[in-house]
Amino acid sequence: MPQISQILETYASQFFWLLIVFGLIYFTIGHGMLPKIEASMDARDRKIADDLAAAERARAEADNLGDSGAADLKAARNEAQAKSSAAKAKAAKDADARLAKADAEISTKVAASEAALSKATAKALSGIETVAAEAAADIVAKVSGAKVTSAQAAKAVKAVMSHG
């Protein structure tokens, strides 16, 4: 077994080179490179934790905003409903009032027209009597040649018209 049979000849060389190599590993790799690698691992872990915390905060904020948004929306809808029902009520009232006013105007106009109509009718009726009397007098004059006064003719027309 060379490990034991050669031990006296080789131990110095083995110790010497091992101490050099292990020293280099310990100081340049263990204390030089390893801390940098661990630092980048820590930095990544911290970044991930920070990002997660930020995302959690943003989520909570969004939840809050959603809640208040829903409340705002509800209030606005209520307000809009109140406004629209008030406007409807007002419009109905206005329409009633205008309708009533128009009714009144129309009925006065109707009454005036009726009055004018009856007056005109009366006037026409009296006109007809005169025309009829004149016509009767003319007819009498043409038929019999007798002269009838308009008073006599009017009297005769009146008598006929009242009879029939």
Partner: peptide, 17 residues
């Protein structure tokens, strides 16, 4: 006074490094 020859063992230590 010590024999610290560069041996095949030393070579492999360097390779490991």
């Amino acid at each position: 006074g010590y024999d610290v020859s560069f041996t095949n063992s030393s070579l492999f230590m360097i390779l490991v490094l």
